[in-house]
Design a protein around this nucleic acid. Structure first.
Lengths: 176, 176
DNA sequence: ATCGCATCGTCTGTTTCGGACCATGGGCGA
DNA sequence: TCGCCCATGGTCCGAAACAGACGATGCGAT
């Protein structure tokens, strides 16, 4: 029951266990991979080490499977549940950070050949179109199930961002 | 002239020096702070240590000021300039990552009180409105100067993203 | 001349990151 | 029923990123 600060990673682990119920690190890795991982990626090694830390802090408890690989299954303790609730209730003054290599390259493009821009734009158009179709698929498949409806809300934000980016890069591709 | 991989930080340093000319780490910190730092932030300590690394790699050269604080002034070598050009010319398959705490909280909101959403939305509306006015200001001040015109292009993307986010959170605030 | 403070820079411990690499055991062919 | 393949599941490591406290320095006003 040691202490320490909780990072975003911590809340992703706690939150995901909260939503899915008792989970192994591998479960977390998969769940994160097709949910929040789309906009904020976490190295999988983190999803193995973080639960250990949270268990030491008393926010999770472990149980070892009795069969097969005897994997460790983590579940929320009352403290863990409370930590998530407190986090959700706390104000969020942070602004998002949009780490975008393409935008970087566009910013510095004067230092290279101007022909680079068109290729950059074309590739981004492709990326965003692909992503949009993934998101639309998710929306089609789960959007109507009441059980998942609330979790689909952030997807709308994701879609809007993708569409804004797609519009932008399309206009760049035309201009240059 | 050791070697090693170049990270995004490396290109930000090389690129910024390319745009501004010879710079001290402090110059870099300031320049980054009101340019790419808006969408991708770098701890300032990095902007002090990275130039050293790049100098060891032969991509930058140092000169020490003869007066005052005798600060180190870094400039691009031919190899450095070439490294940036190669980076700009290389394809970018990566998709942006949008690290957004608010979106995280929205995703996990079922685990807390539903009243949290409205507060979250309100705060985000404020954040995005503020950011939009900062960007619009930049556009007003530098948008017309031909010298900076090209560097202002990515700002349009930033603005579109902000406006998309603002629309999203406004709709959330209304729905809940 | 000195003091105040904006400018400028360093240091430290921790977490993140990417990716190579390792281990396990259930099912399938012989 | 053996064994071996390979998808599933997990560990490890070195390098970089990170936050933020703290330290230094010189210039301008009094």
């Amino acid at each position: 029951m040691s202490s320490g600060r909780l990072s975003t990673t911590s809340y992703v682990v706690l939150g995901t266990i909260g939503l899915r119920g008792p989970s192994t690190p591998y479960d977390l890795k998969r769940a994160v991979g097709h949910s929040v991982g789309y906009f904020w990626s976490f190295p999988h090694a983190q999803l193995y080490s973080e639960p250990e830390r949270l268990e030491r802090m008393g926010l999770l408890e472990v149980e070892t499977e009795q069969t097969g690989r005897r994997r460790k299954v983590y579940s929320l303790t009352d403290e863990g549940r409370e930590a998530v609730r407190a986090w959700l209730a706390a104000p969020t003054h942070e602004h998002f950070e949009m780490r975008d290599i393409a935008e970087m390259k566009l910013f510095f493009n004067e230092l290279g050949d101007s022909g680079n821009i068109v290729n950059l734009a074309r590739e981004q158009i492709k990326q965003h179109e692909e992503r949009i179709s993934v998101y639309e698929d998710m929306q089609r498949r789960f959007g109507s199930e009441p059980k998942y409806a609330r979790r689909m809300i952030p997807l709308r934000l994701g879609l809007e961002m993708e569409r804004a980016a797609l519009r932008f890069w399309s206009s760049i591709a035309e201009e240059f």
